[in-house]
Nucleic acid binder design. Structure first.
Length: 512
RNA sequence: GGCCCGUUCGUCUAGGGGUUAGGACGCCAGAUUUUCAUUCUGGUAACACGGGUUCGAUUCCCGUACGGGCUACCA
């Protein structure tokens, strides 16, 4: 009974997976690592119409960025391959055939048009059409038509699908690790298509067959699959695999911040934050979106915040490394209700990681996302700048945006400070201060500070009068990192240059 | 519509038959800081409703309301 745990993350490459998918993969991964099992990536590409080139690579890259390592999968191989359902097409046919022979499935010849018409007909009577024991005798299939006619239709190459023959009035019990026992009567389930007209399996068949063949022990997936789980149980039963059926755990959904509906890919950047781990550009249309990586998140922070959306350790600790998450994770601490995505809290997580990071770590991360103009920035200089800026950064990119003045002269100056503090009678004084700086041999923060303080005393000026002007001269803004350290980092030449430039601009601003 | 799942501060959540219902984010106030930020201190704010069960329910049961999911030859 001590069978090795095997789990899988099974996305379909019909688009770029968003944070909900990543969270599912993460929970699955944490659980698997915790118990020393194998984590598998399986690509469910049975829908050739919705296939998006590049989506599979995107999934692999996302997982890699998050630090989620696959033991088996389409990109790493393994003993249970192939791991791409399109490459296992024949396998599903065999099992569909098996169910046909055992009487658990049947051929259906109804066309899409006929089915649509049927649905409309029912809808007109305010009813919902369901292909099930109560209606299948009135449809065109191997049960209603009989053996002879079926064989004739097959021989004439009439298009067909294979449907599961749902038993009438049977109790189906799903034992869910998150929700407990869920009981459904088989009358609620319909005769789902197993094998489509193009010979490809539907999700249900492919999923059950692969989970069985790959010896998956735990199916961890989103709550949207809970309603079709009874169907899956019935499928295991029809295939004679019920005794080795995996355990199920259905995860609560991640909801939009408004609480209206689950977070979806289409939300893109519309909600004011990324819903994708990585930026992407659709291969065939103009659509694109940014990701957490590009916006300047640490993958560790991203993983951390995702872990807390629907799970908690039961302690007050909130900052967790991947290893700590693995150690602390357990399925029974997963919540049951959907969690709204909270952008404020998400930012807070990243801020925590930035605050704790060394300047050099920040610099390495920052240079990767640097705008073209700053790509050549010296790493040591950048590290020092990050060190001074990190307590006011939320994203790694903030060093390039909020802290751009480390790398070039201010683009604009705080107008209010200029208006109130750049007084005509004091202008010569600032030129004098500049000369005093010029005379410094060692342009250290301490020396700059001493110079400024002596200057203030000599002329009877306060901190606000001098420091605010000095700050605006160097950074353009009246808020920012410690000014003396910043001056030291910029260096004497640059400071003198900026003082000169800004003094001119200040004069012009006053004159205007 | 039918079926399934859910419901503790605005948000993420802890808790659990008798608690001052705890923490975090956000927000507000104060302290520190040359500015901003950080940090610290304090504050604001919740058991959806109605019936049971019980000496006692936020906690257990039932119903209602509300929210979410599913209802395709999509996953």
């Amino acid at each position: 009974m001590s069978q090795k745990v095997r789990t899988r993350y099974a996305p379909s490459p019909t688009g770029f997976q968003h944070i909900g998918g990543i969270r599912t993969a993460l929970y699955c991964y944490l659980f698997t690592r915790k118990v020393g099992g194998s984590f598998i990536l399986r690509i469910e590409d049975t829908d050739q119409n919705r296939y998006v080139p590049g989506a599979e690579e995107y999934i692999v890259e996302s997982l890699k960025w998050c630090g989620i390592k696959c033991d088996e999968g389409s990109h790493v191989g393994g003993e249970y391959g192939p791991y791409r359902q399109s490459e296992r097409k024949e396998t599903y046919g065999i099992y569909a055939q098996q169910m046909l022979e055992s009487g658990h499935a049947y051929y259906a010849f109804d066309t899409s048009e006929e089915l649509t018409a049927k649905r409309k007909e029912y809808e007109a009577q305010k009813k919902v059409f369901k292909y099930d024991p109560s209606t299948r005798m009135s449809m065109r299939n191997s049960i209603s038509l009989g053996k002879e006619e079926t064989e004739a239709l097959l021989a004439a190459n009439t298009p067909w699908v294979i449907r599961l023959k749902i038993p009438a009035d049977e109790e189906v019990i799903v034992e869910d690790l998150v929700r407990g026992m869920v009981r459904v009567n088989s009358n609620e389930v319909d005769d789902k298509i197993l094998l489509k007209g193009d010979g490809m399996p539907t999700y249900h068949l492919a999923n059950v067959v692969d989970d069985h063949l790959m010896e998956i022990t735990h199916v961890i997936r989103g709550e949207e699959w809970l309603p079709s789980t009874p169907l899956h149980v019935l499928l295991y039963r029809a295939l004679g695999w019920e005794d080795t059926m995996p355990k199920f755990a259905h995860l609560p959904l991640i909801l939009k911040p408004t609480g209206k509906g689950k977070l979806s890919k289409r939300d893109g950047d519309k909600m004011g934050f990324p819903v994708f781990p990585l930026a992407w550009q659709h291969p065939t249309n103009e659509e694109s979106s940014t990701g957490y990586r590009e916006i300047g998140f640490f993958p560790e922070a991203f993983v951390n915040l995702l872990a807390f959306l629907g799970w908690n350790p039961g302690t007050t600790q909130e900052i967790f490394s991947m290893d700590e998450l693995i150690a602390a994770f357990s399925i029974d601490r997963i919540g049951k209700s959907g969690a709204r995505f909270d952008w404020d809290k998400a930012q807070w997580f990243n801020q925590q990681y930035i605050k704790e990071a060394a300047g050099s770590t920040l610099a390495e991360a920052a240079i990767k996302v640097a705008p073209d103009a700053y790509k050549g920035t010296d790493l040591d200089f950048l590290a020092s700048a990050c060190e001074l800026m990190k307590e006011r950064m939320t994203f790694i990119n903030d060093i390039w945006e909020k802290g751009y003045f480390f790398f070039e002269s201010p683009k604009e100056y705080d107008a209010k400070v200029v208006r109130t503090k750049w007084k005509e009678e004091r202008v010569p004084l600032f030129h004098q201060l500049k000369e005093q700086f010029a005379a410094l041999d060692n342009f250290s923060a301490a020396n700059v500070e001493a110079t400024v303080k002596a200057f203030m005393q000599e002329h009877g000026l306060g901190f606000g009068d001098v420091l605010q002007v000095f700050r605006v001269m160097l950074a353009g803004t009246k808020s920012g990192p410690p000014i003396f350290e910043m001056a030291e980092l910029l260096g004497k030449t640059e400071v003198l240059k900026r003082m000169e430039e800004s003094a001119k601009t200040f004069d012009e601003m006053k004159a205007a």
